[in-house]
Every structure is written in structure tokens, then in C-alpha cells.
């Protein structure tokens, strides 16, 4: 198991890669990818029982990324976990590339094609239910955006997850408080969020979505027997780059050359500091 510091370093490298490939492709969902990097880091490096070698194992854990637009974060983490060489991302969004701007099963390690919001939770419910029906013991995780929660299908899935007592199901909400138009609370308020999920019959925990230890503790096992788990991860959109943090336009903003250089300089400095601290 990697240490918190090792994971923190990974997150910095992941952020660097996310920006690199978005810049290379000239398109991407920057803010939401940066806000969920730490969540994906913890999932793939500490929680999910899945690897390139076990990806065809029927008993592997499943991760379904409902907020499919944050595909760059997923691709970067999958590449780091050895599902494919990171250099494959040279073709990201290119002609005839498998690396589309949303997850597809043509890419090794991807479980579900997503991109239309509001689909991941019902699919994860079906996945967790299959595990229960076969007594297979695997877990299902899905990652939702906070703006995405306005899609009614999520609440159909929330009912079903509790109805079937799917304690092997975890929904993580990347609660960065922003969507395209602005603040989620102004576009379509869903607070009080924790109360909603617990009223739907879920076990809920709110954590700092950039605290690797807190995320690990919330995800390493179901929060409560007999109930599905909802982890509300309070995050910062654009996390890690000072001028992108909590700024709406970076939802799908692509950095220009100057911004790209400044962002990398910030990440490099953080990497040096973290590595230096260890030396």
C-alpha cells in the first residue's frame, strides 16, 4: 500500500499529465478532472481490487465514472496503473482514436461508456445487484458531479440502491460546487445534500475530497451494513492550479501557452517541495 506522501506525489504527477493531454488535444474538461484526481488516485491505488491482470475477472471491483466528461483524469490514472501506455494519449480526441473525449470500453480498464450525465448510478446499482445475486463479493463505485445530481435518474437509482440494501455500492459525489453555468446552488440547489441521501436510505459521510487519508477511510469499506454508501467529497474545481481553482470558466477551458507554463511551474514546485521534504 503506497503511503499518503507517495499518493500525494502521484496526484501532482496526475495533474501534470491531465493538463499535458488537454493541452495536446486542444480540448478537455479541465476543472472537473482536476477536482476528482485525488478521488481516482485513492480508488485505483488503494481501494479497487482491479488491475490489468484481473480486468476480465468476474469478481473484480467495478468503477463506473458517471461524470464521464472528466475522462482525462480517468485515462491518466488508468495509464499509470498499467492498463495502457500513457503515450497512447497522443491520439486523445483524434481521428479514429479509441481515446474519445468521454470513457468508452474500447479503452482498457473502462467498464462503461458514459458522457451523458445521470447514467452511472443506475448502472452501478445493476452492477452491485449482480454481485449480490451471485454472492460474488465485489463492490461497485460510481463518481457523480454535483451539478449532475439535478438529473432525475440519479434519484431513481438512489431509491433502488437503498431498496436492495446494496452495501457493496458506493456513490462518490465530486462536490466542487460549480457546474457550467455557475454555482450549483444558484443553478439548481440540492442542499441539504447529506440529509437528502440519508433520507433516501443511504449511509453518508462528508469528507475533504483532497484529503487522501480521509478519502481512504471513507472508501475502504462500506460505511454501514445493509445500506449503500454515499461519500460527499468536498472538492475544489481546478484544484492544484492557483488561477484555475474555483473559477467556472476552467470547466472546459484549455490553457494557452503562458497559462500552461505557469500551471506546470506551480506543479513542479509542489513536486520538488514534496520530494524535498522527504529527502
Amino acid at each position: 500500500m503506497p503511503t499518503d506522501r507517495e499518493l500525494a506525489l502521484k496526484s501532482l504527477h496526475y495533474r501534470r499529465s491531465v493538463l499535458r493531454w488537454i493541452k495536446h488535444a486542444g480540448a478537455g474538461h479541465t476543472g472537473g478532472s482536476l477536482s476528482c484526481v485525488d478521488i481516482l488516485n485513492v480508488l485505483y491505488n488503494r481501494i479497487l481490487r482491479v488491475s490489468p491482470a484481473t480486468f476480465t475477472d468476474p469478481k473484480r471491483d467495478r468503477y463506473i465514472q458517471s461524470k464521464g466528461h472528466s475522462v482525462e483524469a480517468l485515462f491518466v490514472v488508468l495509464a499509470d496503473r498499467g492498463f495502457f501506455p500513457e503515450s497512447d494519449l497522443e491520439t486523445l480526441c483524434g481521428y479514429q482514436s479509441d481515446y474519445v473525449g468521454h470513457p468508452t470500453r474500447h479503452v482498457a480498464g473502462v467498464e462503461q461508456n458514459t458522457g451523458a450525465l445521470g447514467h452511472g448510478l443506475p448502472i452501478a446499482v445493476g452492477t452491485a445487484l449482480a454481485s449480490k445475486l451471485d454472492d460474488a463479493g465485489f463492490r461497485a463505485f460510481t463518481l457523480l458531479g454535483d451539478g449532475e445530481l439535478a438529473e432525475g435518474s440519479n434519484w431513481e437509482g438512489a431509491l433502488a440502491g437503498a431498496h436492495y440494501k446494496l452495501d457493496n455500492l458506493t456513490a462518490i459525489i465530486d462536490c466542487n460546487t460549480l457546474q457550467i453555468t455557475g454555482r450549483t446552488k444558484d443553478v439548481m440547489n440540492h442542499e441539504p445534500l447529506a440529509e437528502k441521501w440519508s433520507a433516501f436510505g443511504w449511509a453518508v459521510r462528508t469528507v475533504d475530497g483532497h484529503d487522501l487519508a480521509a478519502l481512504t477511510a471513507a472508501l475502504e469499506k462500506p460505511l454501514e451494513p445493509g445500506k449503500p454508501s454515499c461519500v460527499i467529497a468536498r472538492t475544489i474545481k481546478g484544484k492544484g492550479i492557483s488561477f484555475m481553482e474555483d473559477v467556472g470558466k476552467w470547466h472546459h477551458g484549455v490553457p494557452n501557452d503562458d497559462e500552461f507554463a505557469r500551471a506546470n511551474a506551480e506543479l513542479d514546485a509542489a513536486i520538488v517541495q514534496l520530494s524535498g521534504g522527504a529527502a
Binding site: 468476474p58 467495478r62 463506473i64 467498464e111 462503461q112 445521470g118 447514467h119 448510478l121 443506475p122 448502472i123 452501478a124 446499482v125 445493476g126 452492477t127 452491485a128 445487484l129 449482480a130 454481485s131 445475486l133 451471485d134 460474488a136 461497485a140 432525475g152 435518474s153 431513481e156 437509482g157 431509491l159 433502488a160 431498496h163
Partner: peptide, 26 residues
């Protein structure tokens, strides 16, 4: 009874759950 799954009056959920079950070999 173990081979029928009820999702309630929720057709989007019906198809999403069916996809999840299908993805696991059902």
C-alpha cells in the same frame, strides 16, 4: 423469485440497472 428484479415505475432506472446486470454476465 430470484430471477426477477423489480425497479419500480422508473424506466430509465430499468434500462440502466439492466445494463449493469448485463455487464456482469447476466
Amino acid at each position: 423469485p430470484k430471477q426477477i428484479v423489480e425497479v419500480g415505475i422508473a424506466e430509465q432506472n430499468l434500462v440502466g440497472i439492466a445494463a449493469g446486470l448485463g455487464s456482469c454476465g447476466k
